[in-house]
């Protein structure tokens, strides 16, 4: 613990220096106004320790501005935002979830502010809204995880179809599309590939159901179940790095890519701090931290990835459009509950 936190402190110090220098070169127009606002409220579905780390980095670079982190699942975030608005509460500045469909909906309802973060010019098209309201902050892919104490690499399932084998009955875990945007994207991508029959067959294997896309990897690490049928690969990568008995399989049929957008709300109580924070999260330095310590993919062209993780261009990616995700959100949840029970 002490070694890790010293390492982190050094990283923070270095990064703060870098950012501070960057800032001196291109003075942010938001800075003064942002300092007056004093804080930014961030609803995020980024896994909790990672979200807190990004917030710490920002607060170190800008000591006058606090980040209020509220981390929960993508669907819960949308529920929160809409519930608050129904009571005329305007609390959130920056919304970051893994369900791109949310942004189609929010944009339609005119709840997003148009803002292009500094430095996103070089990002691939899949990370950018054509109307300029939201941008992909990070990406992850869904993969299969297995517990290395329970099986060898040869015994582990290799494909999504392998998971239908009855020998895995009672041994697998899934996260929930009604909670997680990563999983909603996953379910839709596999419905494209194999139809709903796939999930009907999968449910015969009596899966344990958890909520967050970050939880299947913890369940597999603990050994409570030995195979995860979905989940963001970054959460498993982090656990593996910490020495947990978990390994990641990227099925060759393709892996559902989840680009998680971020946007500033049209009603943001701290709009300048929101812009400053958004710019900050898109800097190469922060994007590099996401790739290094968190195991995420990003749209930033200059980011280097850890050697022990496959590059995005080495994987066959399954993609879905935000528009379809938005349209079929309810269907995804309903059918999933129908097959899996809760």
């Amino acid at each position: 613990m002490s070694k890790r936190s010293t390492g982190l402190a050094v990283a923070v110090a270095l990064l703060a220096g870098l950012v501070a220098r960057g800032e001196a070169q291109t003075p942010s127009t938001h800075l003064e106004a942002a300092k007056k606002e004093g804080k930014v409220v961030w609803y995020t579905s980024l896994v909790l320790p990672s979200a807190e780390r990004v917030a710490k980095l920002f607060e170190t670079a800008y000591p006058d501005i606090k980040v209020e982190v509220h981390r929960t699942g993508s669907q819960r975030i949308l529920q929160r935002v809409m519930q608050e608005l129904s009571a005329n509460i305007k609390n959130v500045d920056v919304i970051h979830t893994s369900d791109a469909g949310h942004y189609v909906l929010l944009k339609e309802k005119k709840l997003l502010a148009k803002y292009t973060p500094a430095g996103v010019e070089g990002f691939p098209a899949g990370f950018k809204d054509k109307d300029g309201y939201y941008y992909g902050l990070r990406a992850t892919v869904n993969a299969i995880f297995y517990n290395t104490k329970a099986m060898s690499a040869a015994e582990a399932p290799k494909t999504w179809k392998d998971l239908l084998d009855p020998k895995w009955k009672g041994k697998m875990v899934t996260a929930h599309p009604g909670y997680s945007g990563v999983i909603a994207t996953h379910v839709l991508a596999l419905v494209h590939l194999y139809g709903w029959d796939y999930f009907k067959a999968l449910s015969q294997n009596k899966l344990m159901i958890v909520q967050s896309a970050n939880d299947p990897s913890t369940v597999v690490s603990s050994g409570e179940r030995i195979v995860a049928v979905n989940g963001g690969d970054y959460s498993a990568y982090q656990l593996k790095k910490k020495g947990n008995p978990i390994e990641i399989v990227y099925p060759k049929e393709g892996v559902p890519l989840v680009v998680s957008p971020t946007a500033i709300t049209a009603f943001a109580p701290h709009p300048n701090a929101a812009r400053l924070f958004t710019d900050f999260t898109f800097t190469r330095e922060v994007q590099q931290v996401m790739a290094d310590s968190e195991g995420l993919y990003t749209g930033h062209p200059d980011v280097k990835y850890p050697a022990d993780k496959p590059k995005l261009n080495e994987l066959k990616l399954l993609t879905v459009t935000p528009e379809e995700l938005e349209k079929r959100n309810e269907e995804l949840r309903k059918r999933f509950v129908e097959f899996f029970g809760a």
Binding site: Q75, R76, M82, G341, A342
Partner: peptide, 22 residues
């Protein structure tokens, strides 16, 4: 305990009816 096993009770069901769209 019930949700991971794939079943709801009245209270958890009421709670999940608040999901968007509520």
């Amino acid at each position: 305990l019930a949700l991971p096993a794939g079943f709801h009770t009245v209270t958890t069901q009421i709670w999940s009816l608040f999901q968007f769209p509520p």
